[in-house]
Computed example of a mutant assay.
Amino acid sequence: MSERLESDMLADSPHPRETMRLIGQDRAEQALLAAYRSGRIHHAWLLGGPEGIGKATLAYRMAKFVLTHPDPHRLDGATSLSVAADAAPARQIVSQSHVDLAVLRRLPNDKTKGFYSNIRVDDVRNVVRFLGSTAGAGGWRIAIIDSAEDLAREGANALLKVLEEPPPRVLFLMISHQPARLLPTIRSRCRLLTLDPLGEADVLLAAAQARPDLSEETLAAGAALAQGSVRRALTLADGEGVSLHRSLTDLLAKLPRIDVAAAHALADRCANKAGDENFALLLDFLDEWLHQRLLAARGEPVPRLARWAQVWEKARHAARDVEAYNLDRKPFVLATLGLLAEASTA
């Protein structure tokens, strides 16, 4: 497992390049295998879908396969993108030493002790130069971008020329959580391969593979709330997510009555710097609850449906203000619960 936290990995979990088994994405894997076997694989692939469903694992899996089998016409009857863990390209990719693989991602910022907010344009230009040079081993040059959303406009534009006129035997594997939000000029030059959210059983299996130190009960509770995302399941299982969801659910079940003591206790768990992760989770839980409430209200009178829509919009707007201006979170939590109670009585 990686010793240092990286921008494209979850703490205490293996990095996608270290994950040898891809769970629940057979359709996407077979699509890449078939394209490569044809000998006419498109040079740029956009691997799309929600966070935490295996896109990066698939990208590294494809890179290992191509660099292990550089001739697409000599695949020895391969039925998946699996390669032996001790194959030289696989070992080199895991150790970040393969000369024909470049990875674009947000790098550590020594000044802030965090990560740069975007993939730096200088890093993009370095990769463009790398792709134009002669391959060092198997004849392919591969670039993994994780994620495309982290490319600022200047960085995306720096990629365009090589996307438009790629050198021979160059392969882009771009990971995107929201492909529709990318620049049209980037999207139009890539082949979109959408990965689906995982079923709960696959989420649990993948989560257990990543974190065998966590109990099955804890992982199962996280998987049940994960909405098909292994990353979300692990975040919930490893922190206060499951108990936070239970506390919020208990409060919402009593609406329009508000348990004042429980509401303050919930808000306190999201306050200050220590509550950063809890606050982000709470926003997700509230957003999902309101989404489900709106779906349930579709058969109700229009004014009542409109009230729930207004509450959803007000909560989202207030949450953006809290995060943008670093406002106190406790009043936001209490005010939002008040809005929900008011909408429930109408």
Rank of each mutant, 00 (worst) to 15 (best):
E288F: 04
L281Q: 12
P301R: 06
L282F: 09
R298Q: 15
W308T: 04
D268L: 03
G275K: 02
R293K: 14
G299V: 02
W308K: 00
D287V: 02
E277N: 10
L290V: 00
V302G: 03
K273D: 15
A263V: 02
A280L: 13
A271I: 03
R293M: 01
D287H: 14
L281G: 07
P301Q: 09
V302S: 07
W308P: 00
A280K: 08
L295N: 14
L305E: 10
L281V: 07
A306Y: 02
K273Y: 01
H264R: 09
D284E: 15
A296T: 09
L295V: 11
V302I: 07
E300K: 13
L294A: 05
L305Q: 14
A297P: 05
F285S: 08
E277C: 08
R298L: 12
G275M: 00
A306K: 11
G275I: 00
W289A: 12
E288G: 02
A306T: 13
A309F: 08
F285R: 10
H291Q: 14
C270P: 00
E277Q: 14
L286I: 08
W308D: 06
L286N: 03
N278Y: 09
H264L: 10
A280N: 15
W289I: 08
A265T: 08
G299Y: 05
L305Y: 10
E300G: 08
A261M: 10
H264C: 10
P301N: 12
N272I: 00
A309G: 15
Q310M: 05
R293G: 01
E277G: 11
D284V: 01
G299E: 11
V302E: 14
Q310N: 12
V302F: 05
R304E: 10
A267M: 02
R269Q: 09
A280D: 15
L266H: 05
L283M: 07
H264K: 09
A261H: 10
A297F: 03
L283A: 04
L286C: 09
L294F: 04
L282W: 03
L283N: 07
L305W: 06
N272D: 15
D276K: 07
A309E: 13
P303T: 10
C270H: 03
P303H: 10
P301L: 09
R307D: 13
P301K: 07
A274F: 01
K273S: 15
A280Q: 14
L286K: 00
R307L: 15
Q292A: 11
L281A: 09
H264V: 11
A263K: 02
Q310G: 11
F285M: 14
K273V: 10
A274Y: 01
R304Y: 06
R269F: 00
N278Q: 04
R293W: 00
C270T: 08
F279A: 06
A297V: 01
D284C: 06
A309Q: 14
D268N: 10
A306I: 11
N278V: 06
R298Y: 01
N272Y: 01
E277T: 15
L294P: 06
D276A: 10
R293P: 02
C270Y: 01
R293I: 05
A296Y: 08
L290G: 04
F279S: 06
L283S: 06
